[in-house]
Design a protein around this nucleic acid. Structure first.
Length: 488
RNA sequence: GGUCUCGUGGCCGAGUGGCUAGGCAGCGGUCUGCAAAACCGCGUACAGCGGUUCGAAUCCGCUCGAGACCUCCA
């Protein structure tokens, strides 16, 4: 298959032709959630963004190994020496085992990602299951002279590393600036420099998540897990590493430093970062407390939500913006996305009932190529969707008898539906409005039959009564030349 | 304060040195007993001020505004 895929590499800050290390194979690692709370809209963004990457790479013929981790240890509340582990803190507050917290929120995360039609990754490793691998990296970093120990904790010597390799290569900073601008935090006395980061932390006596090591009973630093698990499952250098833009520094920067310090190899060829979802122009984030959970979106149970929004509406909303731009949440925008999504799905749903005739005025090959061009240009889903709406107009016009469609065109559109809407965008062809209960169909047929007779008798009062009453129950009646249809 | 990004019509959002995405909402029309849906048509937007250019929303400079990262955050 011809491969013209270009993607924006955060490392070079340019779009580059995509060339995997091994022909036909792609290794991709994406930073997954820290499972100490319910997933919110912000978590849906990387989930969906890299789901698209995963789906598209497979669609164009690659065998993809997609690793998305679960962070269940080592992620501290802050970077001070005495910061508390997020999982451990939640466990203490809820009086549960840390692994109960981890399991509970991992299950929740899976359920919500599944609802959003996000495919599960090939491998989903837990940080806590790779303590030994993380220790081995620390050993290597020690051997190469880029780590130092202080009271049972181990830190990465950024200054020394920077003499040989640029620390800041990914995020575009330099060490002098960082030194000048790093804020003073409490309890950083163990670190030689404020920008040094922990590879291993000695656990305080009350800390329940702890592992034995040659340095102390403790736990690994946050950045280490991705270096360890990425290398383990994808190799010391792999193709794509993804995550949210907010992880670019210091998390990914430190990942590069650790891997270089341990292996003298750049761990990743292409870095991809999705932008943030904003709310009132500001980043939706845990620390800001301005997040709305996915469950709240699905149920509508939140002060800022005017209604519930279906998972597919959320997915479509996110796909209508390019992944590197911010996307601003608002009820108006979400409602618009919901309507657009339904129009798209309904139109493609009408396709199968169209009787082929003369070819109409839409170039299928051009359309299909345009769809591929959009995706090949750094996964430009909004452009892809715009092209799909060209097809929507054509299908609706043909279904209304205002133009005609050839058998070839019909087949081409059915293929586009399968390839782009279902396989690549991962949208569900069933919307809430197109799903009808099977037993209900017969009853509705009777009811509509009665209404038809009433209309023939020009008893519009009664026929409208039926329509209005059904409408009140969420059933919409549509009269067309070919008869009456209904949807819930 | 440092580094960086962005500012597009009522709203959301692509794009880009000349061929004026798309969606939602709105208006007019077709269809209909009426409505809904669908279809057709319409609004000529690119923060402001300068500059480069035959030509800029797109390049450059300045001003204003917003945001991200620099601490945990997807």
């Amino acid at each position: 298959m011809e491969n013209k895929l270009r993607l924006f590499n955060s490392l070079s800050r340019k779009k580059e032709d995509f060339k995997p290390l091994t022909d036909g194979h792609v290794g991709m690692y994406v930073c997954g959630p820290t499972v100490y709370g319910d997933p919110h809209l912000g978590h849906a963004r990387p989930g969906i963004t890299f789901d698209i990457v995963f789906r598209y790479l497979q669609h164009i013929g690659y065998k993809v190994r997609y690793v998305r981790n679960i962070t269940d240890v080592g992620h501290l509340e802050n970077d001070a020496d005495h910061g508390e582990d997020k999982i451990a803190k939640k466990a203490r507050l809820e009086e549960l085992e840390p692994m109960e917290i981890v399991q509970y929120y991992t299950n929740r995360y899976h359920a919500f990602m599944n609802a959003l039609n996000v495919l599960p990754p090939s491998i989903e490793p837990h940080a806590s299951g790779h303590i030994i691998e993380q220790m081995e990296i620390i050993d290597k970093i020690f051997e190469n002279g880029y780590a130092y120990e202080a009271d049972g904790s181990v830190y990465f010597d950024v200054e020394k590393y920077n003499k040989k390799h640029p620390y800041g290569i990914l995020s575009g900073r330099n060490i002098e600036e960082m030194l000048a601008n790093t804020r003073e935090l409490d309890g950083q006395d163990e670190k030689r420099k404020p920008y040094d980061f922990a590879l291993w932390k000695k656990a305080a006596p009350e800390h329940i998540m702890r592992w034995k090591s040659k340095w102390s009973d403790g736990f690994p630093g946050w950045h280490l897990e991705c270096s360890a698990m990425g290398a383990k499952y994808l190799g010391e250098t792999f193709d794509i590493h993804g995550g949210g833009m907010d992880l670019l520094f210091p998390h990914h920067e430190s990942e590069i430093a650790q891997s270089m310090a341990a292996n003298e190899k750049m761990p990743v060829n292409y870095w991809m970062h999705n932008n943030m979802i904003t709310i009132n122009g500001q980043k939706m984030g845990k620390s800001l407390g301005n997040f709305i959970t996915l469950e709240e979106f699905f149920t509508g149970n939140h002060d800022m939500l005017e209604q519930a929004y279906s998972p597919m509406t959320i997915r479509f909303f996110i796909l209508q913006a390019h992944y590197r731009g911010t996307v601003d949440f608002s009820n108006e925008a979400l409602q618009g996305a919901g309507k657009a999504y339904e129009r798209l799905i309904k139109a493609f749903g009408r396709l199968d009932d169209i009787n082929p005739a003369e070819a109409g005025d839409l170039d299928m090959e051009k359309l299909r190529n345009s769809c591929y061009d959009a995706m090949n240009d750094d996964f430009n889903t909004p452009i892809l969707i715009a092209h799909l709406f060209d097809a929507v107009k054509f299908i609706n016009a043909a279904a209304d008898g205002k133009t005609t469609m050839s058998d070839e065109q019909k087949n081409a559109l059915q293929n586009i539906r399968k390839d782009f809407i279902v396989d690549i965008l991962g949208l569900d062809l069933e919307t809430s409005e197109t799903v009808g209960g099977s037993g209900l169909n017969d009853v509705m047929d009777i009811l509509l039959d009665v209404r038809k007779k009433l209309k023939e008798e020009k008893n519009y009062a009664m026929s409208d009564f039926i329509r209005d009453e059904l409408s009140a129950k969420g059933v919409t009646i549509k009269d067309t030349k070919d008869g009456t249809s209904w949807e819930m």
